[in-house]
């Protein structure tokens, strides 16, 4: 009787108490939530809702069917391929650089310079980055001309700088430093005692990497690779500045839809693409967080 009665009592009482207190103490966060509602939640809602509005105005999943069309599926495949390759290569190169840094003096000049520079370069992207590579490897670029004068033509099979392989190479420019930043703490968590313990227990370098350092670092490495994937999957400006024609990757398809006539005739399609991107990045980021959490105990 009482057991059944008391919850009802408390729920009945709460609105009165809470109703008085809630506005008072939550008034401080109202501006923030209003701002977020208008400029973050509303756009997200527009994407969500708009993606369900078919060109004829009806509510349907027609827009998502468009993703399956060959040219669009190809863009998704390209986006995923370029992100995967630049993430994996960037992760390995960044991990090597991070390892080279971490084996130096803990507070040395080298370490400070590399981490500072990584923080800067990881932010570097867009138009400027595209120009930098055009000035380096473009057909009038410094390095291209330098190599050509020595009889090496890097474009014997066509000018790849402006297609997917070029874009992948350019993405490495921000992927590697990002990897350094996110992977360095994991490497720092590796204690020299573990290597020495391995040795005193009869293990060599191979055993150390195979049974100790490898398993310890792998989840973190994988998580960082996922983060890099999300990073290049979301990238748009570099590709936009480099590739002026065609929707090679999904962001460029979105751009085309936003700026062209065909796009304005089917506004829901761009939203469906945006939603697909958000879902992919969201899944990847959740996996990243889970992997990071897994190693949190180990690498403190």
């Amino acid at each position: 009787m009482t057991a059944a009665g008391s919850p009802a009592l408390s729920t009945a009482a709460r609105p009165v108490r809470g109703g008085r207190r809630l506005p008072l103490s939550s008034i401080g966060v109202v501006p923030f939530f209003v701002y977020i509602a208008v400029f973050l939640l509303l756009p997200t809602a527009i994407i969500l809702g708009g993606s369900l509005v078919a060109p004829d105005g009806s509510i349907s999943f027609a827009n998502f069917a468009g993703i399956a069309k060959p040219y669009m599926a190809k863009s998704f495949a390209n986006s995923i391929a370029i992100s995967a390759v630049s993430a994996v290569v960037g992760a390995f190169a960044g991990a090597l650089l991070a390892y080279a840094v971490v084996t130096g003096k803990p507070n040395g000049v080298l370490r400070r310079s590399v981490t500072s520079a990584s923080g800067v370069v990881a932010q570097f992207g867009g138009v400027t980055l595209a120009f930098a590579f055009v000035a380096t490897l473009g057909t009038t670029g410094f390095v291209y001309e330098f190599l050509l004068q020595r009889g090496i033509d890097i474009y014997t099979n066509g000018i790849w700088l402006y297609d997917l392989s070029g874009l992948t190479l350019i993405y490495l420019y921000f992927q590697i430093p990002l990897m350094v930043l996110v992977f360095l703490p994991a490497l720092d968590g590796i204690r020299p005692q573990w290597r020495e313990a391995t040795e005193s227990l009869g293990g060599g370098t191979w055993h150390y990497w195979r049974y100790v350092a490898g398993p310890l670092l792998f989840p973190s490495f994988l998580g960082c690779t996922l983060l890099l994937f999300a990073n290049s999957f979301s990238a748009y400006a570099t590709a936009a500045a480099l590739i002026t024609q065609g929707g090679v990757i999904v962001p460029l398809q979105i751009q085309a839809l936003l700026t062209s006539e065909t796009g304005s005739s089917q506004p829901g399609f761009a939203k469906a693409l945006a939603l697909a991107m958000i879902v992919i990045v969201l899944v990847v980021m959740v996996l990243y967080t889970l992997l990071q959490r897994r190693t949190a105990h180990w690498l403190r």
Partner: peptide
């Protein structure tokens, strides 16, 4: 060998 601390393989 027994080290000062934190020498157990944490995983």
């Amino acid at each position: 060998m027994v080290f000062q601390a934190y020498s157990l393989f944490p995983h």
